[in-house]
């Protein structure tokens, strides 16, 4: 693989991880018209759930008994479940109570909840993983836990014995599979169509007899699972997880969603890829560019919203008089 193709490849990889969190923002914004600012933290919570599920399975000795595919499925299922629960909790605690108040309230409360999740992860995972460091390092486990608050090494669940390239192909494949499943769900199932209906016209969705409350809850379950997978892929890509990655990851996902046009899933994909490409090409082509990649990425975001405030695939919002 020459230099240029490897850059494109990394850009798509990074874009994949951003896309998933951007889709999370999209889904939540679609049904609620609220930006759920703790989405990134939910995703990182997912990554930490994976680490702890991994450690626990290791402690139970299941890795010697079960094939890696089965243990991976168990770990992902645990993480998806926990993220779905956290996501529902987010809705119940920080969004639903403010349904009738101004749009600022859920914004503030989700930012606050994001900080709570982040600090909670920082506090919880240090002592928990420190205590079980012993047995794991003894069996030469791929997890090696650095002391202090972070970072935590992400277990190599995806193709543990293969080269990095194979692992990365799998990351891309998983993202595409998830997106494909999401599209099928949104367009072919009654629940998916109801989600779209609520996104287009909530009042009419009510008038059509759609159980809006239930649909919103299910959206949060699905969004939570998407975020868990996003966090998992980001962790696998970077091979470390820090408790505070969530805020930056979240802002990038949010930027990707806005650049794409907040209510469009295709927009989220395009926005996520765009951000991935900008970051990777800045760090790859400019000497010492790694230091500037976030600066330039967010400057690009600002330029985009100046010239295309409705997003690439968004529609111009016409204020009703």
């Amino acid at each position: 693989m020459n230099f240029f193709t490897s850059l494109v490849f990394s850009a798509i990889l990074l874009g994949c991880t951003y896309t998933l969190v951007a889709i999370g923002y999209c889904l939540f914004f679609g049904v609620l018209d609220v930006v759920v600012f703790c989405s990134g933290d939910i995703a990182i919570f997912g990554a930490f759930s994976i680490i702890s599920a991994y450690v626990m399975l290791y402690d139970l000795g299941l890795f010697q008994v079960l094939p890696i595919a089965v243990t991976t499925m168990i770990i992902l299922a645990v993480a998806a479940l926990l993220c779905a629960l956290l996501s529902i909790l987010t809705y119940r605690v920080s969004i639903k109570p403010f349904e009738r108040s101004s749009a600022l309230m859920p914004l503030l409360s989700t930012i606050a909840l994001g900080t709570v999740i982040r600090e909670f992860l920082g506090l919880l995972f240090r002592p928990l993983l420190m205590t079980i460091t012993g047995p794991i390092t003894r069996v030469a486990d791929p997890i090696n836990i650095t002391s202090g608050r972070n970072p935590q090494a992400m277990p190599k669940l995806i193709a543990p014995n293969s080269s990095i390239d194979v692992r990365n192909y799998i990351i891309i494949a998983v993202t595409f599979l998830i997106i494909l499943l999401l599209f099928l769900f949104l367009n072919k199932t009654k629940m998916g169509l109801s989600m779209q209906a609520i996104s287009q016209n909530k009042e009419l969705a009510y008038m059509n007899g759609i159980n809006v409350r239930k649909t919103i809850n299910i959206t949060f379950v699905i969004g939570g699972i998407m975020l868990a997978i996003g966090g998992f892929l980001l962790g696998s890509y970077q091979s470390v997880v820090r408790f505070d990655t969530g805020s930056l990851y979240g802002s990038k996902g949010f930027s990707a969603a806005v650049v794409g046009g907040l209510k469009s899933i295709w927009g989220a994909i395009i926005g996520g890829m765009l951000l991935g490409f900008v970051e990777v090409f800045v760090s790859g082509l400019i000497p010492g560019g790694t230091q500037y990649q976030n600066i330039i990425a967010f400057l690009v975001v600002i330029v985009f919203i100046v010239f295309k405030p409705e997003g690439i695939l968004g529609e111009k919002v016409i204020e009703k008089v």
């Binding site: 009654k190 779209q196 209906a197 287009q200 009042e203 059509n208």
Partner: peptide
């Protein structure tokens, strides 16, 4: 005036109308 989802097809609109 507001009873249809403009971005959805007629078929989908009917399906959503018959939600129950």
């Amino acid at each position: 005036a507001t009873g249809t989802f403009p971005k959805m097809t007629v078929e989908t609109n009917l399906r959503l109308g018959a939600y129950n």
